[in-house]
Nucleic acid binder design. Structure first.
Lengths: 165, 165
DNA sequence: ATTTCTGCAAACGATTTGCACAGGG
DNA sequence: CCCTGTGCAAATCGTTTGCAGAAAT
């Protein structure tokens, strides 16, 4: 019982983007649709350049400029989250629709990104924010860490949530 | 009883940097000393460009290139922490010597940066990291929030820890 | 028809780097 | 002296932007 009428995150995303556009007199174009389809075809994080490649696989006419112009739209409408993980390029995370409060651990050895979710952190952040006299809008925890397994054996079997490895 | 023989964070910093340099056959120069003095003369966060200006006030011969070449040294030796707060320029925090585990709240209205410390967060992050099979090396919480006072009255009286306001 | 979008290529801005000279040890 | 550090200016590289034509409504 999950074969026909299932709504994927991509579908949700497309709907959300369409209302977002509609609400401001913006137009629906093949390029924008290709970009959003590309963005939600994967659960991996990606850079603008990655997204360009993925979108071009769907619609070859997509240009770099359009990707850069569309990304802020997707972020504003809540479809993507921009991550500051400290690299030289900005990366984007398409998993916040499904898991709105998850956070990231970056392995300093494997460079992999592990996603995790923890209700206590969430709660604590809200308390702290209120105590300081603010209303929370966006919270992010970044943990940099060494992989224990890698330390012992020189390999790491953990799944990267970022690069499909 | 705090007039004469007090050791400021600057002094500590200078000592730490000197050992760091000594340990790798690197030299002590007027420029490096000026840069570190400038960095610890303030408790505010700063960009590379800010630091250049501050260092030049001490030693006019300091060049932009040397600032950029020295910053990684200060970060490696633990004197400064690099912050990814999402702006276009990297900013540096000189307060981790005194408060090794503090975190940051960024006000989306005033753009101010508030520092806070919370032992529960610290603890929780360690638990989570271990549970995932890692050993923590660096943890950072960034909270973006709206200032309640600003929402009500259109002004914000909070002290920015970043720009002395 | 009107207005928004697009691709292209040039512009930008923070950071990095090659080089020849300066200055620590 | 020898080798590291420096300033300068040019190079890099992700991202942004101006413009003229293409497409959506």
């Amino acid at each position: 019982m999950s074969t026909m009428a299932e709504k994927s995150p991509r579908d949700d995303a497309r709907d959300i983007l369409r209302s977002h556009l509609a609400g401001r007199g913006m137009r629906r174009t093949v390029q924008r649709e290709a970009i959003i389809d590309a963005a939600f075809r994967t659960k991996d994080h990606f850079s603008a350049e990655d997204l360009l490649l993925m979108a071009r696989a769907i619609e070859p006419s997509v240009s770099r400029a359009t990707v850069y112009r569309t990304l802020p739209l997707l972020v504003e409408s809540g479809l993507l989250r921009q991550l500051d993980l400290g690299g030289d390029t900005t990366i984007y995370d398409p998993n916040f629709l499904d898991h709105p409060t998850h956070n990231h651990l970056v392995c300093v050895d494997c460079r992999k990104i592990i996603e995790f979710e923890d209700p206590h952190i969430e709660l604590l952040e809200n308390c702290i924010t209120r105590r300081l006299g603010f209303s929370p809008t966006n919270k992010s925890v970044k943990i940099e860490a060494r992989c224990d397994e890698f330390q012992r054996s020189g390999v790491c079997s953990k799944q990267s949530s970022a690069r499909g490895a």
